Simulated assay, not measured.
Amino acid sequence: MSQQPYAPRPQDPRPRGGTPPSGAPPYPRHRPPRPPATSDLRLLLRLTVASFVLAVLGGAVGLLAAPGQLTGVPVGPAFDTFVLVGSLVLGFGVTAGLYALVYFPLREQRQWAWILGIALASMALLSTLANAALLLVGPAGASPGLVTGALKAVVDVAWLVVAVRPGVRAALR
């Protein structure tokens, strides 16, 4: 029996409780290598950016096309401007955050971003169709909103079609 009952075994490359050898990671990484990005995945990423641009453009067109929407408490034009700018910044910030939540992990080929993207694209398509129905019922001067809404609906449908292609699924892990 040895004097040190808990001494490391000879085949153990590093002693227990000690630091790892220089140049070695602190813990082993057993991640499989990422599959190569396919052309379908790259197309899906481009459609994500196009959908974001159309969402921002649609918001801007909606704001410019309907300037009389801001009716509320008659406090004054400064307060109305403050509320309008604040809601625009908040709305565009949330929109950018949701698109970033899909785009960047999808670029890293994360499967959960693909699932989230399908859910968000489906909800965006439904809300675009609901907004189009409301614009058709509303005043006749809302045609720019219909054009951007139609373009956004086309891009969202294309996103959903490309998302279910086998090339996208092959690139995700």
Score class of each variant (00 low, 15 high):
89 V>H: 10
89 V>K: 09
89 V>C: 15
89 V>S: 12
89 V>M: 13
90 L>T: 14
90 L>K: 11
91 G>R: 01
91 G>E: 03
91 G>I: 02
91 G>M: 04
92 F>Y: 14
92 F>R: 00
92 F>C: 05
92 F>A: 14
92 F>Q: 13
92 F>P: 07
93 G>C: 13
93 G>N: 08
93 G>Y: 05
93 G>T: 10
94 V>L: 15
94 V>D: 12
94 V>K: 13
94 V>N: 09
95 T>Q: 12
95 T>H: 07
95 T>R: 04
95 T>K: 03
95 T>I: 13
96 A>G: 15
96 A>W: 01
96 A>R: 06
97 G>P: 05
97 G>T: 01
97 G>K: 06
97 G>H: 04
97 G>C: 07
97 G>F: 05
97 G>D: 08
98 L>C: 14
98 L>N: 09
98 L>S: 05
99 Y>R: 00
99 Y>W: 12
99 Y>M: 04
99 Y>F: 15
99 Y>G: 02
99 Y>C: 06
99 Y>D: 05
99 Y>E: 02
99 Y>V: 08
100 A>H: 06
100 A>D: 01
100 A>M: 08
100 A>S: 14
101 L>H: 07
101 L>Q: 09
101 L>S: 11
101 L>M: 10
101 L>T: 10
102 V>W: 05
102 V>L: 08
102 V>Y: 06
103 Y>E: 01
103 Y>F: 13
103 Y>T: 00
103 Y>D: 01
103 Y>R: 10
103 Y>H: 11
104 F>P: 00
104 F>Y: 15
104 F>D: 01
104 F>R: 12
104 F>S: 04
105 P>Q: 07
105 P>H: 09
105 P>L: 03
106 L>W: 00
106 L>N: 00
106 L>V: 02
107 R>I: 00
107 R>L: 07
107 R>A: 11
107 R>F: 03
107 R>Q: 11
107 R>C: 01
108 E>A: 14
108 E>S: 09
108 E>L: 11
108 E>V: 04
108 E>Q: 12
108 E>D: 12
108 E>N: 09
109 Q>F: 03
109 Q>V: 05
109 Q>A: 09
109 Q>G: 01
110 R>V: 05
110 R>F: 06
110 R>T: 05
110 R>Y: 11
110 R>E: 08
110 R>C: 05
111 Q>I: 14
111 Q>P: 02
111 Q>H: 15
111 Q>C: 08
111 Q>D: 13
112 W>S: 02
112 W>L: 10
112 W>P: 01
113 A>N: 04
113 A>K: 02
113 A>Q: 04
113 A>H: 03
113 A>F: 08
114 W>I: 04
114 W>V: 02
114 W>N: 02
115 I>E: 15
115 I>V: 15
115 I>M: 14
115 I>K: 14
115 I>W: 14
115 I>P: 04
116 L>C: 03
116 L>H: 02
117 G>K: 03
117 G>W: 00
117 G>S: 02
117 G>Y: 02
117 G>R: 03
118 I>Q: 11
118 I>K: 06
118 I>D: 08
118 I>H: 03
118 I>T: 13
118 I>E: 07
118 I>R: 11
118 I>S: 05
119 A>F: 15
119 A>P: 06
119 A>Q: 12
119 A>D: 12
119 A>T: 15
120 L>W: 03
121 A>M: 09
121 A>D: 07
121 A>R: 00
121 A>V: 12
121 A>G: 06
